Computed example of a mutant assay.
Amino acid sequence: MRVLVTGATGFVGRHLVPLLLDAGHDVVVFVRDAARYDGPPGADVVEGDIFEPATLDPAMAGVDAAYYLIHSMHAGGDFEARDRLAARNFVDAAESAGVGRIVYLGGLGEDRDRLSAHLRSRREVEHILASGAPALTTLRAAIIVGAGSASFEMVRQLATRLPVMVTPQWVETRCQPIAIADVVAYLAGVLDHPETAGETYEIGGPDVFTYREMLQRVGAQLGHAPRIVPVPVLTPRLSSYWIGLVTDVDTGVARPLIEGLKNPVVVGDDRIRDIVEVEETPFDAAVERALREERGTRENAAEPEPEPTTPT
């Protein structure tokens, strides 16, 4: 199957592309700068910009299924408007090219819970992608645990830097985190099941925690579980500024993520487990793997360049 991956340089895309190649798919990656793409060999690289519709046409040529893994929080400003435009350009191009399926990774959260701007935008993108001719498969996930995940990085830095935390009431919100390995296993797996076309599924790991419990468990693996003191006066918006003071997570990313923490994000429909077989990763194991990969990345970055040798 010829498969297009947008967002191939992002956190999820970097893990998905090698898995698709290993499964025998013909993979096309759509990136803004082909010269800087350092993904695995074997993928066809097409350069373009999601906001320039004409550049999507070469990427969509001959594609059977297309993954949409783009969101605009890192761009700052009105990310909702940018997400809306990007999704419209994508679905129009896919429809014109005769693409059969789109696969989208959205966010967990019940519409009745007055979703945050971030989750509301993810849901709007979902509706836009479903409006075209290609059949849409949506997978909805909560916090994805892995090295490079913005939401997990925020949790890790809080657990690392604050022995005592004064936090808003969202620390008692329930969440069902999922390991990045499990996310991409589901994303790749739906291609093998035509019955998933046109369907929406919720995916999560085997554990459900409050954010307080997650912070404490991550802290325990770092050797110092923080003491957490929730206070009712620290609103999600104020706490987003607090995040900016105590972590180096970009405020433009942290703010919409923090404002979404008031919404419970727990799987209510686990039908996907009966369709795509995934050996679910326990939260503690996922955290251990993520921390190990982060340490490896830091150590590699700190290694000095080898001294040049003189030929003899």
Rank of each mutant, 00 (worst) to 15 (best):
S72W: 02
A220G: 06
V253M: 14
I228C: 08
F90E: 06
A302W: 09
R271C: 07
P232N: 09
V145T: 13
E277F: 12
E259Y: 01
T6K: 08
E259V: 00
Q169A: 14
Q216A: 14
D83T: 00
P226T: 06
E213D: 11
R120L: 13
L4N: 01
N89T: 11
Y241V: 08
A94G: 09
E213M: 06
I50C: 03
C175R: 01
G132H: 06
S116Y: 02
L119Y: 02
G109I: 01
G260F: 07
R82V: 15
A225F: 03
T167R: 05
A86S: 15
P304Y: 13
F30C: 05
V278M: 10
F90R: 03
V246N: 06
G7H: 05
L234C: 10
D270F: 07
S121D: 05
G189H: 05
A66I: 03
G106H: 01
R174S: 13
F11D: 01
R122L: 05
V171F: 13
I180G: 01
E213R: 07
P40Q: 10
D22N: 14
G189N: 08
G268V: 06
P306T: 08
I275N: 07
A147S: 15
G107H: 01
D250F: 04
H15D: 10
L187W: 05
L222Q: 15
E202H: 04
V28S: 11
I143E: 01
V145W: 02
L119M: 15
P163N: 09
P311R: 14
A179V: 02
I203A: 11
P282Q: 08
G148W: 10
S121V: 05
A147F: 07
P308W: 14
E195N: 07
G10P: 03
F283D: 03
M154R: 03
G10C: 09
D83M: 03
A59V: 09
V276H: 04
L139P: 00
R140T: 00
R114V: 06
A285H: 10
V17R: 02
A179L: 07
Y201K: 06
Y37W: 15
G260L: 10
E110F: 01
V276E: 07
G109V: 00
V125H: 00
Y67S: 08
G107F: 00
L21M: 10
G244N: 09
Y241K: 06
G100M: 05
Q176W: 08
A86Y: 03
G24Y: 10
R161K: 12
D248P: 01
I243V: 15
R123T: 02
W170N: 01
D92P: 00
F152Y: 13
P40Y: 04
V231I: 15
N263G: 01
R36S: 15
P308N: 12
F11N: 00
G132P: 00
R123P: 00
D113Y: 13
L261F: 15
F79N: 04
I228Q: 05
Y68L: 06
